[in-house]
Design a protein around this nucleic acid. Structure first.
Lengths: 213, 213
DNA sequence: CATGAAATGAAAGTAACTCTCAAAATCTAG
DNA sequence: CTAGATTTTGAGAGTTACTTTCATTTCATG
């Protein structure tokens, strides 16, 4: 069994028999498309992999592929972790400084993803530095995470989440975190992503190390 | 004369007779393509404007359009300001704090662009929030600017420009600045971009206003 | 089982981008 | 000024992501 298939564990239809046959089939189709995509990209690279090939291997029609994922990049990047992060963020104690909350939530998300399928985490980062469209989609979803961060900041500081200051601050955080991910991939995944995130958050909180000695 | 054409002034072939006919024609073609694109987008919107229409109006073939600009977004976004910024950055006194240098360079770039063609500055921001591909290309070019910032930081602090810390810091700056631009566009271009940048740089330098009272 | 709703597949269409090659414009020598 | 080398352009055909439409199949429900 390839490590790719490990990702199925948590969301596989077998785990939720309460769903109707229709819903279970949809989940299976989603997984089939994603698995086919990962496998083909691994074999031939991203650009050489066409939607038609993906459809063939997943045993669906090309139209169905587009019904499940709006773009090719989304097949690679879409996951179901965002709701988990929201939930986890809400569960944090109200008096915790929000940057600690953030640190905690990111740790949790990373741990979950690395436990479930580290190869996919690496492949995504790798595609992120190689394929502009993928990187672009990554930035996009980081921005959505940025909105989360803004709400969290607003809740804890009383500032307006749509103010220039909060937006700039949140985006600087997400930009910095994005850069961690890219740095990790560009340096051949050396070091624990978790530790790199901590170093990044320190920079974001206190500035560059030697700046104010 | 439409405000669009004002952008020609500084780079128009008439200003540099030292160039051969070939080079002067190339500059003219570039401008023709860009002017046609801006005009068509203004008339019909971005998506409704095809490369074929652009080619027609610029009186070149579609192949030629792609020879001058790799993608449709590039027609809208590519400009010649980067070399100017590099030059300006080098000209700053060595003992100036690099964030002040940055502030100065951005002010200069903004002033130049707003003086030359404010409508284009606004149109780009507007397209940036509406068209994902354009926003993506904007982020891309901000990343290139980010590399500039890293070198500047490295020169002045002695840190490694490729270290995680410097990369994270630089990207947090560029991300924050990008957000200023988007915020300005989303709020109907209210306020001076210059002032917004100053507020953003304050946040990036000192954190959120009420954070450490 | 029958009826309605949802999911699928087939097919045709659009538009961005690529590649190739021949024609045209410009440059350079003599 | 002309001949030949070089560069730029246009025409055309091809690829592929993505859209839209519609008939068919598959599942849910009473």
């Amino acid at each position: 069994m390839s490590p790719m298939t490990a990702a199925r564990s948590r969301f596989s239809p077998a785990d939720r028999p309460q769903l109707g046959l229709r819903e279970r089939k949809k989940i299976k189709t989603r997984e089939a498309i994603r698995d086919a995509t990962y496998a083909l990209i691994k074999e031939q690279g991203y650009d050489a992999t066409t939607i038609e090939q993906i459809a063939d291997r997943a045993e669906v029609s090309p139209s169905t592929v587009f019904r499940y994922f709006p773009t090719k990049e989304d097949i690679v990047l879409t996951d179901e972790y965002d709701p988990l992060m929201v939930e986890e963020l809400r569960a944090r104690p109200a008096d915790e400084s929000w940057i600690d909350s953030l640190r905690h939530v990111i740790h949790m998300a990373l741990d979950t993803m690395m436990a479930e399928d580290p190869e996919v985490v690496r492949m995504r980062a790798h595609l992120g530095i190689q394929i502009p469209a993928v990187r672009s989609r990554m930035v996009e979803s980081m921005s959505e995470t940025g909105r989360l961060i803004r709400e969290s900041i607003a809740e804890r500081t009383g500032l307006d989440p749509d103010s220039l200051e909060v937006r700039v601050y949140a985006m600087s955080l997400t930009g910095g975190l994005m850069e961690v991910y890219m740095h990790w991939a560009e340096n051949d995944f050396r070091g624990e992503l978790r530790d790199l995130v901590d170093r990044a958050l320190d920079v974001l909180e206190h500035g560059l190390p030697t700046e104010n000695p």
